[in-house]
Each structure stands twice: as C-alpha cells, then as structure tokens.
C-alpha cells in the first residue's frame, strides 16, 4: 500500500517538476532565428558552393583527380609561343596553359574539400554561399570559360601549328644530321592536331 501511494505521488510529483522546468523555458529568449531575414555567420573555411577563379587556374587537373565523385572536368591547351594573344597569370608570370574547358557538376559535389586542398594555385575554393538550389540539375552544371569556343579552337590550332613547325624543324635537323651520317632513330611525321591538346 505504501509503495502504491509512493508510486502515485512520484508520478504526480515528477510530472509537476517537469512542468516547472518547461515553464522556466517558456520565458527564455528563443534560439531560432528568422532564416531568410537573419543569418548565422558561417566560418571563413565553410565548405559550401565551389567557385573557380579562372585567372588562377592552370588546368593541372589536380582537382579532377582528387575529386571522389568526379564532378570536375578539366581540359587545357599549352600556350603557343607564337600566339599573338599572351596573358599574364595571376601569379605574375606569363600564362602557360589556356583552360579550354572547365566544368563542375555541383549536383554531384559532396563538399569534401579535397579539390581545394589539392589545388596548387588556390584557384578552386569552397565559398560561404550555400543558397544556390535550383529546380533542375542543368542549372547546377557550371561551365567556366574565359575563351569563346572559337578562341579555344584557335588556340588548339595555333599549338598544333607550332608543334608541326617544331617537328618539321626537328625533322629537318634530323635529316640534316642523317645526311651527315649520324644514326637517327626512325621518327614519325608531325603529330596530329587532336593529340596536341593536353589533358
């Protein structure tokens, strides 16, 4: 009997105690905020939307290799020394590689930050921007360009031409050497244009 009454009292007492605790919270300041109007500050190293700085990118493909989900596609072509359009890279030296294609599929991105760590020139970065949701996946497919497609084709052609010339010069030199009687390994003709673009 006494344990029964004790039990009943404990049930009542603990319930009232719980209600006292919740009543204390009733007058506290709320911890939630009105999201689109107010925002929490994100830390500087927050890993959100990926952004590429094309002026820094060297198309070295380190990010594409580091990415666990293959969401980055990079293609580049070496700058032909005969190209009239030369550019200074962000690090102050003349640009060595044109980035002809840089595509990021942020729908695939897992925000691990490995590309950011792998990038030697600090070109690719996670930013604090996290509000970029979209209605279709295509709008999350980001293509970065500093050259128009025509320009890219031009760069590829220029490099191919340059390589052809170089090869022709080399072949001429080799022929010259051969006529002088030195043994030379048999060499192929000039490389094709599509091989010229570097990965």
């Amino acid at each position: 009997m006494s344990s029964y009454l004790k039990n009943v009292w404990a049930g009542f007492y603990t319930a009232v105690k719980g209600m006292m605790i919740t009543s204390r919270h009733m007058f506290k300041k709320s911890v939630t905020i009105q999201y689109p109007d107010e925002k929490f500050d994100l830390p500087a190293n927050a890993r959100n939307k990926l952004v590429l700085d094309m002026s820094r990118c060297n198309a070295c493909t380190a990010c594409a290799i580091a990415c666990p989900v293959n969401c980055i596609t990079v293609e580049g072509v070496r700058v032909s020394p005969e190209d009239p359009h030369q550019e200074v890279h962000a690090d102050g030296k003349p640009r060595k590689v044109w980035v002809t294609r840089y595509e990021m599929d942020l729908a695939k991105c897992c925000f691990c930050g490995l590309c950011q760590a792998a990038c030697p020139s600090d070109a690719i970065k996670h930013t604090q921007d996290f509000e970029y949701s979209a209605y279709n996946k295509e709008s999350l497919y980001f293509k970065y360009q500093i050259l128009t497609p025509e320009q890219s084709a031009e760069k590829v052609r220029l490099l191919a031409e340059f390589k052809e010339k170089e090869a022709a010069a080399k072949a001429a030199a080799a022929e010259k050497a051969a006529t002088e009687g030195k043994p030379v390994a048999p060499k192929k003709a000039a490389p094709k244009a599509d091989e010229a673009s570097e990965q």
Partner: peptide, 27 residues
C-alpha cells in the same frame, strides 16, 4: 548546435567533416 559550431569552424562542414588526414589533420 554549439558543438556542431565548433566542429564547423575546425573543419568547414557541419556534419560530414572530412577533417582527419593520415598523419595529421586538415586544419
């Protein structure tokens, strides 16, 4: 939330940290 906030400031992410590295930490 305050725990997550510390971990976020350390690693940059709230839940999926990718903070450990072989022989060290990411930051």
């Amino acid at each position: 939330e305050s725990i997550i906030w510390i971990l976020e400031r350390l690693s940059g992410a709230r839940l999926l940290y990718n903070y450990f590295r072989v022989g060290g930490m990411a930051a």
